[in-house]
Amino acid sequence: MAARFFEGTNHAELYVRYRPATPSTLVQLVCDYIKEKVPGPLRQAVDVGCGSGQGTQLLAPHFERVLGTDVSPAQVAKAEAAPGAVNIAYSVSPAEAIALPSHSCDLVMAVQACHWFDMSTFLPESARVLRPGGALALVGYRLPAPVWQGREREDVRELLAESYVSGLAGWIQQGSVDTYINGYSDSRFTSPLEDHRRDESTFCDLDGTVADMVGYCSTWSGFQNMVADKGQEAGQKFLDDIQNRVLALLGDGATPESSIVIRFRYFVLLSRKPVDTK
């Protein structure tokens, strides 16, 4: 079964506030890949682990039908409450049991989610629902970096990575390291399909402040686990420490209210079902 981390209503609200939305350019990249082998209109896509439905909505213009699924009722409730296209439906279900017929989908997509799935079950289940030529897209993003004074600050991204791995040791799981740090490079993310491609050209820029970037850290499941274990005071201290260290790196009069661009760099692993599959 998929691990359950983003189920509390408060955490779902933090997720909507601070997490990036899937860039439309990435969705177009995926659709162009599918159309290399699938002629005509694209019929159906399923966004597995859809969360609040931000990425699901971007699929709607490209497909006749779109289904978003998530194991979390709180996340699905957020998705259903948001304005959306009429060709989108949502359901509460695990990633490892996609409630669609075999050979019915042109796309199975998972955005910043599959590191919590049982991949040994999810991958063959994805292959089952894909029609010949259909694609599996495993999407994730790295820890963010601020664009400050015209330069993307990799040193701040490295600081966040160190805080994540060391500061939350004992509260994070390997799955989160697999995406934020390793970019799904582990062999368990390799699909049984063909024509594998990896693309890392897409990024999402969010206008915000230093405080907003630190607020994003509160959405980490490891942070939520630490707060549940140690309490709100420990959580606030963790976030304050990150903020102070970020400000020290930025220098030049940076404050929590300083305007920055928060840049999330995406990666996507693409593969497709063989066209001659029966």
Rank of each mutant, 00 (worst) to 15 (best):
Q236W: 11
G208V: 06
Y216Q: 02
D199H: 04
V214C: 04
G253Q: 07
G231C: 10
D252K: 14
S201I: 05
M226C: 05
V214N: 01
Y216W: 12
F203V: 07
S221K: 01
I242H: 00
D199N: 12
C204M: 11
D195L: 14
G231Q: 07
Y216K: 13
F203E: 07
M226F: 05
V261T: 01
R198K: 09
V227Q: 04
E233I: 06
G235M: 13
T255N: 14
R198L: 02
S259R: 15
Q243Y: 01
K230T: 08
I260C: 10
W220K: 05
G222P: 09
T209S: 15
P256G: 00
K237G: 11
I242E: 03
V227G: 08
L250D: 12
F238W: 05
Y216P: 04
D241A: 05
V261D: 07
A228L: 12
D252Y: 12
S258K: 14
S187H: 08
R198W: 08
C217V: 00
G235Y: 14
E200T: 05
S187K: 03
Y216G: 05
G231A: 06
D240K: 14
D229Q: 03
D240L: 13
Y216M: 12
A211S: 13
G231S: 11
R245I: 08
I260G: 09
A254N: 15
D241V: 00
G183I: 09
E233A: 03
T190N: 05
H196N: 11
F203I: 09
D195F: 11
K230E: 10
D229A: 10
V261Q: 03
N244K: 03
V227A: 02
E200Y: 02
F203Y: 06
G251P: 10
A211Y: 14
K230I: 10
Q224W: 15
M226Q: 02
G235C: 15
Y216C: 10
L239T: 07
L250E: 13
D241C: 06
L250Y: 13
G251M: 00
S201C: 05
G215R: 02
R198C: 11
V214H: 06
Q243D: 01
R245E: 08
T209C: 14
T190Q: 02
Q236A: 11
D186C: 00
I242M: 07
G251V: 01
K237A: 15
P256V: 01
D240C: 11
S191D: 04
P256D: 01
N244V: 04
C217D: 03
Y216F: 15
D240T: 11
Y184P: 00
E257S: 08
G183M: 03
D241W: 10
K230N: 12
G253S: 11
L247V: 04
S259N: 14
S201L: 01
I242W: 02
A234P: 04
